[in-house]
């Protein structure tokens, strides 16, 4: 039975891919690839696709709960924000793929306990200056701060980020307003 029955996930997840074709709009460049709801189907997909570090500059992978589009405008993301991890060029070779896989395993494995409900998805951006991995949550208000902080601490723990290093949480509304420059951190851990 262990080999015959797939292991169900708490949520169904959808993988998205973004490739920057300047002739098309941002939304047209965002493509839904596949959804899965078991551990085996996650691995079938993950084992089949390029690692994030092999993507061309300007490309993204996103993994979001089914029904949530990987954009600020989605109902589930509008009031939310993201924990952001920036990586330098050296880290693309050494850490990027490990970090991205770890974030995926946290999400599909529901590693954030009761606060897993607040997780929307995660995005990895491959860029010339700095790659970014971000975990998006649905509610950045102070009433949800405990959950946001819990998620941030769990990310640090699972990614083995040094205690002295900090990661920041940015509200999407701030990121939208500051397009092109750095949004402020509402929380840090």
């Amino acid at each position: 039975p262990e080999l015959l029955i797939k292991h169900p996930l708490q949520n169904t997840w959808t993988l998205w891919y973004f490739e920057n074709d300047k002739k098309k709009s941002w939304e047209e460049n965002l493509r839904e690839i596949a959804s899965f709801s078991t551990v085996e189907d996650f691995w079938s997909l993950y084992n089949h696709i390029k690692c994030a570090s092999e993507l061309r500059i300007g490309c993204d992978y996103s993994l979001f709960k089914k029904g949530i589009r990987p954009m600020w405008e989605d109902e589930s993301n509008k009031q939310g924000g993201r924990w952001l991890i920036s990586l330098d060029r050296k880290q693309r070779e050494t850490e990027l793929d490990n970090f991205w896989l770890e974030i995926l395993l946290c999400m599909i494995g529901e590693a954030f306990d009761d606060h897993s409900e607040d997780v929307c998805g995660a995005v990895v951006n491959i860029r010339s200056k700095a790659d970014k991995i971000a975990l998006w949550t649905s509610d950045s208000s102070s009433s949800k701060s405990e959950g946001v902080i819990y998620i941030g601490k769990k990310i640090k723990e699972r990614l083995k980020i040094a205690p002295k290093a900090t990661i920041g949480y940015q509200i999407h509304k701030d990121t939208m307003e500051k397009a092109g420059s750095v949004a402020k951190n509402t929380y840090t851990v």
Binding site: L9, Q10, V39, E40, F42, W43, N47, L105, E110
Partner: peptide, 18 residues
């Protein structure tokens, strides 16, 4: 309610499942 939680090691062990 209940939630389906998987430890990291469990997920990794299933990576090469047939």
């Amino acid at each position: 309610g209940t939630r389906i939680v998987y430890e990291r090691s469990t997920l990794l062990n299933l990576r090469n499942s047939p």
